[in-house]
């Protein structure tokens, strides 16, 4: 509890996990980053509408607490594999939004020098091994990274983010089994937002909870309300401790919701306006966290306003940076297919 005196600690004894575990400064930083994720995606969406970004993108608006909560106990050396809905993970793991915007704009200053775009956004220096266009594609890779950690004794923990859709991919099952048999330091995080594109988990998945799958692989299966930052962070914290202690993997199911459609082609025909409205109005993760911070006296309205305006500035600066950055030259199309040999 960095920075918190004993008196402060005692006064927090009955509060939820994160308010006991982290300093006010750290928690304000979390709120900042949740807003940063939200505004980044809104900024990306707007840029897309204005034709500045091509292709498609998958927005995680509504899932910010999940990304932030899972990454909260991770160190910079720890690693993640992410998904097609991975902007939040990328920011939560420490990426700079200006280089993310630059990537979305296809510029050389982007994280992937304009070769990857939204669906392959990565920040290897900060431990994000990459989003993935293949559902479940990152799960075995995370297990491989965890094997590296174990073999090289680096102490790194690896988190594999995936959605509910991935729980019916073979890669999910094979990877969980291998990780459990070999007791690898990996955490499987299923962000269950209720729908694999248009197909609900009720229609796609035989078990009631995806966390129930953990039983088949002899690992803890934990269900959290993915829209409550403290709940997610607490589950992640325990899973990280377990992984670092060499006790093996954990499956966390973070139940959440995406406010936007699956991608830019979605007409939202598979869910009702009332359902979407309910999640947006009553269960928005940023609102919930902000209310708690205020209620427990970690921040006041002025502090919140300051965060919002700082975030707005960082987003505006990021978009300007992306716009001003150079595009790759067409003559460089063949770069990075193979490692350049001296």
């Amino acid at each position: 509890m960095a920075g918190a005196s004993k008196a402060v600690a005692d006064s927090r004894a009955n509060l939820p996990f994160v308010y006991r575990q982290y300093s006010a400064e750290q928690l304000k930083q979390v709120l900042y980053k949740m807003y940063l994720i939200r505004r980044f995606e809104e900024g990306a969406e707007e840029s897309y509408m204005r034709g500045l970004i091509h292709g498609t993108m998958h927005l995680s608006i509504g899932q910010e607490a999940s990304a932030m909560g899972i990454c909260m106990p991770l160190g910079e050396d720890d690693q993640i594999t992410s998904t097609h809905r991975g902007h939040g993970h990328c920011i939560a793991k420490g990426a700079e939004v200006k280089r993310m915007f630059a990537e979305f704009f296809g510029k050389t200053t982007g994280y992937c020098k304009g070769r990857g775009g939204s669906m392959h956004i990565a920040d290897v220096a900060k431990g994000n091994l990459g989003a993935n266009g293949i559902v479940g594609g990152g799960i075995p890779i995370a297990v491989g990274a965890a094997l590296s950690s174990k073999m090289m004794k680096t102490g790194k923990v690896v988190v594999s983010f995936f959605g509910d859709g991935a729980n019916n991919e073979g890669a999910f099952h094979e990877a969980l089994n291998i990780a459990a048999v070999w007791k690898l330091p990996v955490i499987f995080v299923c962000e269950n937002n209720g729908y694999g594109m248009s197909t609900s988990t009720a229609r796609s998945t035989a078990v009631k909870n995806i966390a129930d799958r953990a039983a088949a692989y002899s690992m803890p299966g934990v269900i959290v309300n993915g829209n409550i930052f403290s709940e997610v962070a607490e589950a992640s914290y325990k899973a990280v401790e377990r992984a670092r202690a060499g006790e093996g993997p954990t499956l966390i199911e973070s139940k959440t919701y995406r406010h936007r459609g699956h991608s830019k082609s979605d007409r939202n025909r598979y869910r009702t306006k009332e359902e979407i409205e309910d999640w947006m109005s009553n269960r928005d993760p940023i609102t919930l966290f902000e209310n708690e911070l205020r209620e427990f006296g970690f921040i006041d309205d002025k502090g919140i306003e300051a965060i919002r305006s700082e975030v707005a500035q960082e987003i505006a600066d990021g978009i300007e940076f992306a716009k001003a950055s150079p595009s790759p030259d067409v003559s460089e199309t063949g770069n990075y297919v193979y490692t350049e040999q001296a």
């Binding site: 890779i141 491989g144 890669a171």
Partner: peptide, 23 residues
């Protein structure tokens, strides 16, 4: 020895190679 999991096993090898090993 891996389980009979060609997709998972190959993916683990890819992930290990990506993070510093030479499988």
């Amino acid at each position: 020895d891996t389980p009979i999991s060609e997709l998972g096993g190959a993916g683990v090898a890819v992930g290990a190679a990506l993070t510093g090993m030479r499988p």
